[in-house]
Write a protein that binds this DNA or RNA. Structure first.
Length: 335
DNA sequence: TTTAATGGCGCG
DNA sequence: AAAGCGCGCCATTAAA
C-alpha cells in the first residue's frame, strides 16, 4: 500500500508538497530523500543551468527585464531571468548567490529597507504601540512578543519571538486564526487567543483592518499612501472564498504597494544623485525592498553613508524609514 | 509540435 | 468552501 494521503491538491490528487513530505518523513525513509532531490534539482534547473544559458554572448552577464505594469500592487516584476528570486535561505542556495560577483576593482553593495511593510502599517494605522516601537528603534518582533505574551522585552524567549514574527507577517497578509495555527503547529483556539491579544495591545491595527475592509467594500478599491489604487471587484461577492481573497488583498495591497512606491522613489532619487555627481557606481538590480549596486572601490565609502540616507529620506512617514547597506565581493557577502 | 494546466517552490 | 499577499518558472502531463 502507498503512503497515507495527508492532504489533497485543488484537483483532488494527493498532495506531495514540502509540508506533506515533512510530515511523512516522520514515519517513512523515502520522503526526506524526495525532498532533498527536489531542492537540489530546483537549484540546478532554475539557477545553475538556466543562468549560464541566459548569459549575454558579448557581455557575459545576465540582463533581466523589469515589468512595470504586471504586479497589481505596483511592484516591479523580473523575468528572463527572474533576479528577484535568487536563493538566500539555505546554505546550498547561497552558493548560487555567490556567483553574482563584482568585476575587478569593484564591490557589490546591497541596500535594503528594514521592516518596511510593518513601518508602513504603523504609519497608516497610527497605532500608538507600533509607532512607539519604531520610533524607539526596538526589535519589532521582540516588542510584539513582549506585548502578546506579557513579558518584559528582556524576557522574550526565542520561541516567543519566532511566534511574534509569524504573527506580524501574517497580519500583513490578512491571515486567519486557522492559518496562524497551521503555520505554528498549534490549536486554532490558541492561535485565536494570540490574535485577540495582539489586537488588544495594538487596537489601532485592528481598527485599520476593519476600516480598510469597510472602505474597500463601499468604494470598490484600496490605495497606497501615495494614491495608487487597486480595484477589488470581488470585495462584495456572494462567493465566500472569492470575497475573502479580495478582503486579504485589501489589507495587504496598501502596505505592499506603498513599499513599492517608496523604493521606486528611491531608485529615481539615487540615479539622479549618481548622475549629478558623475559617479561610476551602477545601480544594477531591484528586489522589492533592496537595491543592488556595482561600486568602484574608491566610491564604496561615499556610497555606504549616502545611499541609506537617500533611501531613508524619500518620504516623511510617521515613523523613521531605515535602510541598511552591506558591501562584499559578491551578492551573498554583501548581505 | 505547440500550448495550457497543474503542482510545486525560489524570492520579498 | 476556504483558511497567507505579490511574483516567475521549473518539470510533467493533458489537450489542441
Amino acid at each position: 500500500m502507498g503512503l497515507p494521503v495527508v492532504k489533497k491538491t485543488a484537483s483532488g490528487a494527493p498532495s506531495t508538497d514540502e509540508e506533506v513530505l515533512e510530515k511523512l518523513a516522520e514515519d517513512y525513509p523515502l520522503p526526506a530523500k524526495v525532498l532533498e532531490h527536489r531542492s537540489l534539482s530546483k537549484l540546478k534547473g532554475t539557477y545553475t543551468d538556466k543562468l549560464a544559458q541566459l548569459a549575454h554572448p558579448r557581455t557575459g552577464r545576465v540582463h533581466t527585464h523589469y515589468a512595470q505594469a504586471v504586479a497589481v500592487t505596483g511592484r516591479l516584476s523580473s523575468n528572463e531571468p527572474n533576479l528577484q528570486n535568487i536563493p538566500i535561505r539555505t546554505t546550498e542556495g547561497r552558493r548560487i548567490r555567490e556567483a553574482f560577483v563584482a568585476p575587478e576593482g569593484c564591490r557589490i553593495a546591497s541596500a535594503d529597507y528594514s521592516q518596511i511593510e510593518l513601518r508602513i502599517m504603523a504609519h497608516i494605522s497610527e497605532d500608538e504601540a507600533l509607532l512607539r516601537a519604531f520610533r524607539e528603534n526596538v526589535d519589532v518582533h521582540r516588542a510584539t512578543a513582549s506585548e502578546v505574551f506579557g513579558v518584559g522585552l528582556d524576557e522574550v524567549s526565542s520561541e516567543q519571538r519566532r511566534y511574534a514574527k509569524v504573527i506580524n507577517f501574517g497580519l500583513i497578509y490578512g491571515m486567519s486564526a486557522f492559518g496562524l495555527a497551521r503555520n505554528l503547529g498549534i490549536e486554532t483556539s490558541a492561535a485565536k487567543s494570540y490574535i485577540d491579544r495582539y489586537f488588544m495591545r495594538y487596537p489601532g491595527v485592528k481598527q485599520y483592518m476593519d476600516e480598510t475592509r469597510l472602505s474597500a467594500k463601499s468604494r470598490g478599491y484600496v490605495e497606497t499612501v501615495f494614491g495608487r489604487r487597486l480595484y477589488l471587484p470581488e470585495i462584495n461577492s456572494p462567493n465566500g472564498p472569492r470575497r475573502g481573497g479580495a478582503e486579504r488583498q485589501a489589507i495587504n495591497a496598501p502596505m505592499q504597494g506603498t513599499a513599492a512606491d517608496l523604493i521606486k522613489l528611491s531608485m529615481v532619487k539615487v540615479q539622479q544623485v549618481l548622475d549629478r555627481e558623475n559617479r561610476k557606481t551602477k545601480m544594477i538590480m531591484q528586489v522589492h525592498d533592496e537595491l543592488v549596486f556595482e561600486v568602484p572601490e574608491d566610491e564604496v565609502e561615499w556610497l555606504t553613508t549616502e545611499i541609506p540616507r537617500l533611501m531613508a529620506g524619500v518620504a516623511e512617514l510617521k515613523v523613521p524609514l531605515v535602510a541598511e547597506l552591506g558591501v562584499g565581493p559578491n551578492w551573498d557577502q554583501a548581505h
